[in-house]
């Protein structure tokens, strides 16, 4: 990852590079344990099916957040700084699924503190079915000399 996106290169309607990923049981379990989420529906097939009534173990919320973060910052590069993410889960992601993440730029603005912001709509789908949608607001440099990570206090308005 060497790209460092700047605000002048982004326009509403821009499409982020698609991410396609085959999900395995290891994906689900590794993600849950990385998040210190020990709950059995994320690693115990029998519990997930017979207690929760789901078809299999499924991806947990913090790990989905980590996937969205990765998807967005793959695009912005390391100078991109997430301000806000809102996501809604409409269905679960299971082992054997191939998930596809897509994103589009909804808006570009510079706030009163001079921080450059991009608003994104990101989706996670499996076989065309929407599993989670995400509205993200990410700060990116207004030019090559700017660094959103240097902003503190009132200069950072996520």
């Amino acid at each position: 990852m060497t790209n460092r996106l700047t605000l002048d290169s982004v326009q509403p309607g821009d499409v982020l590079p698609e991410l396609v990923y085959p999900v395995t049981a290891t994906t689900i379990v590794l993600g849950a344990l990385a998040a210190r989420d020990w709950r059995p529906m994320h690693h115990d097939h029998d519990f997930a099916v017979n207690r929760n009534g789901t078809q299999d173990i499924f991806m947990n919320t913090p790990n989905q957040a980590a996937w969205f973060e990765r998807f967005v910052t793959d695009w912005t590069g390391p100078t991109g700084r997430l301000g806000r993410m809102k996501f809604r889960m409409k269905g679960s992601v299971f082992p054997g699924d191939t998930m596809t993440m897509r994103g589009v730029v909804d808006g570009v603005e510079t706030d009163d503190a001079g921080c450059g912001w991009v608003s994104l709509t990101v989706s996670l789908t499996v076989d065309g079915d929407l599993k989670t949608d995400c509205a993200a607001r990410v700060a990116i440099p207004t030019d090559a000399s700017d660094n959103p990570w240097a902003r503190r206090g009132d200069a950072w308005r996520p």
């Binding site: 990852m1 993600g31 990385a34 980590a66 990765r70 910052t73 793959d74 990570w149």
Partner: peptide, 26 residues
């Protein structure tokens, strides 16, 4: 845990893997 989390989603952001980049940016 940062590295394990990044590994779980294959996040190669150098902020988390390259100390020189982290020093420069964050």
């Amino acid at each position: 845990y940062v590295w394990t989390t990044c590994a779980s989603v294959e996040n190669g952001n150098p902020l988390f893997w390259d100390d020189a980049v982290a020093a420069e940016i964050t």
